[in-house]
C-alpha cells in the first residue's frame, strides 16, 4: 500500500516524526455527557473514541441476567466518517462484533461484577476517528469511563499496540504503519503487571513476539500514569466542588459534626 513511504528512516524517525518507542499524544476528557453514569473521551493521536457507561442497573432482558454477578454489555458504534473510505458498517459487522467481544473479554476479569448480582453494566463505545490502535483506544477509554461511573475495578487497564519493522520494534502504531507491519495489542494491569489481553491480528514471528510484548507492557505503565492523572484531576475537581468533602453516613456524620464544632470553638 505505502511502499514509497519509509516506516522508519535512517535517522530513526517514523513517518509521523516519532521515534521508535514514542507514543502519540493522549488527550483525555471526562466531562459528563447526558444521563450516562460515567463518560470518557480519549484520543491517541488522531484515533479518537468516546465511551459512555450506564449502570450497574436493572437488565433490560431478564433472561440475560446472572444470579451471582453483573453482566457486561458492550456495544461499539463506528461512525461512518471515522475512517479513510466512507462506509457505513452495520452493528452486526463481524469486525465490530469482534472488537466488542475483545473489550468485553478484557474487562470481565477486571470489573468486580460479583458485587452486583442480577445487574447489567452497559458500555457504549463510539469510534469517532480511526488512525490505528483502535482496540487499545477503546480499552483505555472504557477503563476511564468505568472509573468515572464508580464501577469497582481491580485496577486500570492500560492498552497499547506494538509492531515490528525489520529488526526494530515500534510502539503505538498509526494506521499507515498498521497496514504494513505485523503488530499486537496488549492490555496490562499496571499494579500487578498482569496481562488481560494480547491480541494478534497479523502473523508475528515467535522470536520477535517476546520483545514486542515486553515493550508494550512497559508502555502500558506510561499510559497508566497519564490515565491516573486524568482520573485524579477529575475526582479532585468534584471533591473540591462539593466543598465539604465526602458524604458522611449517619453514624460518622455525628462524629464529624462534633469535630467541626471543636474547630469552631478554637477560633
Amino acid at each position: 500500500m505505502s511502499s514509497r513511504i519509509e516506516i522508519l528512516n535512517d535517522g530513526g524517525y517514523r513517518s509521523d516524526g516519532r521515534r521508535q518507542y514514542e507514543l502519540r499524544d493522549i488527550t483525555i476528557d471526562m466531562t459528563p455527557q447526558g444521563s450516562a453514569d460515567g463518560c470518557a473521551s480519549i484520543a491517541h493521536g488522531l484515533t479518537q473514541v468516546s465511551v459512555s457507561v450506564f449502570g450497574p442497573r436493572e437488565a433490560k432482558q431478564r433472561s440475560q441476567t446472572l444470579h451471582d454477578r453483573a453482566v457486561l454489555n458492550v456495544e461499539v458504534n463506528v461512525l461512518p466518517f471515522s475512517t479513510g473510505e466512507r462506509r457505513r458498517r452495520g452493528r452486526a459487522d463481524r469486525r465490530i462484533l469482534e472488537l466488542a467481544a475483545s473489550i468485553k473479554a478484557t474487562f470481565e476479569p477486571v470489573v468486580q461484577t460479583t458485587l452486583y448480582p442480577r445487574a447489567q453494566i452497559d458500555i457504549f463505545v463510539s469510534v469517532q476517528q480511526q488512525d490505528g490502535g483502535l482496540l487499545p483506544a477503546c480499552i483505555n477509554g472504557t477503563t476511564l469511563a468505568l472509573a468515572a461511573a464508580g464501577v469497582p475495578l481491580l485496577d486500570f487497564v492500560c492498552a497499547v499496540s506494538a509492531g515490528v519493522h525489520g529488526a526494530a520494534a515500534l510502539l503505538d502504531l498509526s494506521a499507515l504503519e498498521e497496514g504494513d507491519l505485523p503488530h499486537a495489542a496488549v492490555a496490562v494491569l499496571p499494579r500487578t503487571k498482569k496481562v488481560t489481553l494480547a491480541a494478534l491480528e497479523t502473523r508475528l514471528h515467535v522470536d520477535r513476539f517476546a520483545e514486542v510484548f515486553r515493550l508494550a507492557c512497559d508502555a502500558g505503565q506510561t499510559i497508566h500514569a497519564e490515565m491516573r492523572r486524568a482520573v485524579r484531576t477529575r475526582t479532585q475537581e468534584l471533591v473540591a466542588a462539593m466543598g465539604a468533602g465526602p458524604r458522611a453516613g449517619p453514624g460518622e456524620h455525628v462524629d464529624r459534626d462534633v469535630a467541626m464544632d471543636d474547630d469552631a470553638a478554637d477560633y
Partner: peptide, 24 residues
Amino acid sequence: VVASVAGTVERVNKLVTVRAIRTR
C-alpha cells in the same frame, strides 16, 4: 488492601473504605 474505585479514603477504627465520588 487496594482501592477499587476513585474517591476519598475514609477510616473508622480498623475499617478502611473508599467512597466513590460518582456512583449509583
